[in-house]
C-alpha cells in the first residue's frame, strides 16, 4: 500500500441543513467509506467554518475543495476550477462573507498557500432549509465522488 500514499486534503464545504448547500459535506461522508481513496489523503468536513479552517489547510501540498457552486447551469452539473479561474470565485459576494476565496487570501498573507488547489463543484437546485439533497443533486453526488477519486488518482500518478 505504500506506493498509494498521497499527501492531499479533500475539504467538503457546505451547510447540512440547507439542502444542496451541503453537497460537499455529503460527498465527504461517502468518500470516508470509499476504498479508492489513496492512503494519506485527509478527508475533512469543513461545514461553513470560515477562518476556523485555516489550520487544516495551511501549507497543504494539494487541496481539493468540494462544494456547491452556483454557475447557473442545470442542477447537478459538476464543474471544475483551478488556477486562474479560482481567482474569479468571489469571497465577498457569497452569502457566507468569509468564504473560500477569503481563506485562500488569508493563507497567501500568511505565506502558507497550498501548493495546488482544485475546486470541484456541483450546481445546487435549492438551498432552502432542509436536511435532504434535491433529487437532481443527490443523483450527481456519486459522479462528484468519482471526480474526486479521479482527481486524486491524477495527483498520485503525477
Amino acid at each position: 500500500m505504500l506506493e498509494a500514499y498521497l499527501e492531499a486534503t479533500v475539504l467538503g464545504l457546505g451547510n447540512l441543513v440547507h439542502m444542496d448547500d451541503g453537497a460537499g459535506v455529503h460527498a465527504i461522508s461517502l468518500l470516508q467509506m470509499d476504498p479508492r481513496v489513496p492512503h494519506g489523503v485527509v478527508l475533512l468536513d469543513g461545514g461553513t467554518q470560515g477562518l476556523g479552517l485555516l489550520h487544516h489547510i495551511s501549507s497543504a501540498r494539494r487541496l481539493l475543495v468540494v462544494d456547491a457552486v452556483d454557475v447557473a447551469e442545470p442542477p447537478g452539473t459538476v464543474v471544475r476550477f483551478e488556477g486562474a479561474a479560482l481567482r474569479g470565485l468571489p469571497g465577498k459576494a457569497s452569502i457566507h462573507q468569509l468564504g473560500f476565496a477569503d481563506l485562500m487570501v488569508a493563507l497567501e498573507l500568511l505565506g502558507e498557500s497550498p501548493g495546488e488547489v482544485v475546486v470541484l463543484g456541483v450546481q445546487p437546485e435549492s438551498t432552502e432549509w432542509g436536511a435532504d439533497l434535491t433529487p437532481a443533486v443527490a443523483a450527481a453526488i456519486p459522479k462528484l465522488v468519482d471526480c474526486v477519486v479521479a482527481e486524486l488518482e491524477a495527483w498520485r500518478t503525477q
Binding site: D21, D67, A68, V69, V79, A93
Partner: peptide, 18 residues
C-alpha cells in the same frame, strides 16, 4: 444561518463543465 454556495454567476469566464 450560513448558506454559502460559491456564487460564480455573472463572472467572466467559461464554465468548465464535466
Amino acid at each position: 444561518c450560513a448558506v454559502h454556495v460559491i456564487d460564480a454567476q455573472g463572472r467572466e469566464y467559461t464554465i468548465p463543465r464535466i
